[in-house]
């Protein structure tokens, strides 16, 4: 497996009048060529800011801190001049967002917007770009694309708009597609359509995907690998089967146990994670999950645990320092 994207010690901070928001505070991630990495976490965990940092879309007051590395295909994106970065962004790395209505321009037809993406990175004339747009719309399953290219975004449903976004994102055969909660705004039957489409495209085109989501069901369905984020840090990574079946970090375990699943016994209350996510203005010292962790001991409150390697997983918990921690995975929870 070759690493297509290697993020090392990424720190993205926002300088505001009320202080420094350390939204992303030392994140390590690897996306392998042709594989899907899902980054999962609650709101405020820093997962979207991580994705935006990789895309180079952080504006003032946000700043990627010195010492961070985002290595894509052997080159550190943070050290590239803007011109070279522009040729990578939008061509080799593309991104789709949660709400396709706000990412599409309401005054241009969807066909024009896809063709624009095609022309930005390929040497084609307008006619060629329009043909490619029709082809892409067919690829993402939009019926009668010859007619639909003349539609404006408001004439399409949410699911169709997300298909348009995916078509535009695929216009230059990207090596990496970043998807930030692509199905969160959609109904479950439409979500199923989009997830099937993304899986199908991944298998056919071999595009690597970095997907941001809060939905553990979506993770289980889409991911090869998973990174669990909490309070600006990755607390656990590994293959999706390892992480779900034997979570090593107490946060991952608690998260898996707090989601209701179809057919779950009603006799037992859902697992509750006490308290709330701390503020990025003022992360707790030591392990950031310690104030909410049922297994925390003194050391957790004093020293920040690094990611320990446990078999093929990595977990940032002091309990994993000497090897695997006994834990209950999804198999135990659901049966």
């Amino acid at each position: 497996m070759t690493a297509l994207l290697d993020v090392k010690n990424l720190r993205t901070h926002f300088h505001t009048t009320s202080g420094v928001y350390r939204a992303v505070d030392g994140v390590d991630l690897t996306v392998h060529a042709g594989r899907t990495l899902c980054v999962v976490g609650e709101s405020g965990s820093g997962k979207s800011v991580t994705a935006l940092s990789v895309m180079g879309l952080i504006d003032a007051p946000g700043q990627v801190q010195p010492g961070s590395e985002i290595v894509f295909d052997g080159r550190d994106l943070l050290r590239l001049p803007e011109r070279q970065l522009r040729s990578i962004r939008g061509r080799d790395i593309t991104m789709i967002f949660q709400e396709p209505m706000t990412s599409l321009d309401p005054v241009y037809t969807v066909g024009y917007q896809i063709a624009e993406a095609v022309r930005a990175h390929n040497d084609v004339d307008r006619k060629g770009a329009t043909e490619r747009a029709i082809e892409l719309m067919r690829l993402v399953g939009i019926p009668s694309p010859e007619r639909r290219i003349h539609d404006y975004p408001h004439q399409m449903s949410g699911g169709m708009r997300q298909r348009v976004m995916i078509a535009a994102a695929l216009s230059c055969d990207p090596k990496l597609l970043i998807a930030d909660e692509p199905t969160t705004a959609l109904d479950v039957t439409i979500q199923a359509q989009i997830l099937e489409l993304m899986k199908d495209l991944r298998d056919r085109l071999g595009t690597a995907i970095l997907m941001i989501t809060h939905d553990l069901g979506v993770v289980a369905e889409m991911a090869d690998d998973v990174a669990v984020m909490y309070a600006g840090k990755v607390v656990e990574t590994g293959s999706v089967t390892d992480v779900f079946n034997r979570p090593q970090h107490p946060y991952t375990e608690a998260l898996l146990q707090s989601v209701p699943v179809l057919g779950m016994s009603k006799e037992h209350p859902l697992r509750v994670i006490q308290g709330m996510v701390p503020s990025p203005l003022n992360w707790p010292t030591g392990c950031r999950f310690a104030p909410r962790c049922t297994e925390a001991f003194d050391r957790c409150r004093e020293e920040l645990p690094p990611l320990f390697t446990v078999d093929d997983q990595r977990s940032a918990c002091w309990l994993c320092e000497t090897g695997a921690r006994g834990s209950a995975g999804v198999e135990e929870i659901y049966r």
Partner: peptide, 13 residues
Amino acid sequence: ALLSAIPQPRPGG
């Protein structure tokens, strides 16, 4: 269809 569309948090299943 609605039931089958729900992504279940069990990988491989």
